[in-house]
């Protein structure tokens, strides 16, 4: 199974990139082995969600807005590496998590520490431009959302196709 997850707060313009992405993806047709989830309900609860069915996913794609001072509206994609986080970092992220902080990063740090992420976990980050209250993404956020939707679809459909071919070949 492939998990495609968005993470972020609601109603904060570009900062809500993750939940907005999930909302869009959930209106589309997907291969049976793809699960779209909004995992914006707090890292500890996400950990417990994974714990309910460990090993369910072979692969995960997490997406959301992260303010890192990159060029505005930049989209970055990278493979998640949990080894970079020290126990002190993780402990601090757990503290943040239980006191209400929701972000792609602390969700991944905490879930990763507890060994719940698939070995193949990638992250798509969007550098937000509009960070005011707002029900919709800003102009650049909307544009990037379309691009990220296309990229995710290309990615998972390609993988689904390969999987299907492999299965046919093996048969």
């Amino acid at each position: 199974m492939i998990l495609v997850a968005g993470v972020g707060y609601s109603h904060l313009s570009d900062l809500s990139f993750g939940p907005q992405l999930v909302e869009r993806l959930q209106t589309m047709e997907w291969p049976a082995e793809v699960q779209i989830e909004d995992l914006s309900y707090g890292p500890i609860t996400v950990v417990q969600w994974f714990q309910d069915d460990p090993g369910r996913f072979d692969r995960a794609i997490f997406a959301g807005a992260m303010q890192r001072g990159r060029p505005p509206a930049m989209v970055t994609r990278y493979e998640w590496d949990n080894a970079q986080w020290s126990p002190e970092d993780v402990h601090q992220r757990v503290t943040e998590a239980v006191t209400g902080v929701v972000s792609v990063e602390n969700t991944l740090v905490v879930a990763g520490y507890f060994g719940l992420l698939p070995a193949r976990t990638s992250v798509i980050e969007f550098e937000p431009v509009d960070v005011e209250w707002g029900l919709e993404l800003g102009q650049f956020g909307k544009q990037r959302l379309n691009e990220v939707v296309d990229a995710i679809r290309d990615d998972v459909f390609l993988e689904a196709e390969h999987t299907e071919r492999r299965q046919t070949f093996n048969e």
Binding site: E96, V101, E132
Partner: peptide, 19 residues
């Protein structure tokens, strides 16, 4: 201590979602 508003704090420059 619970310093409310670590999340969703409004400033003149936007909304802060992390400390």
């Amino acid at each position: 201590p619970c310093m409310p508003c670590t999340t969703h704090v409004h400033t003149d420059r936007g909304v802060i979602t992390r400390e």
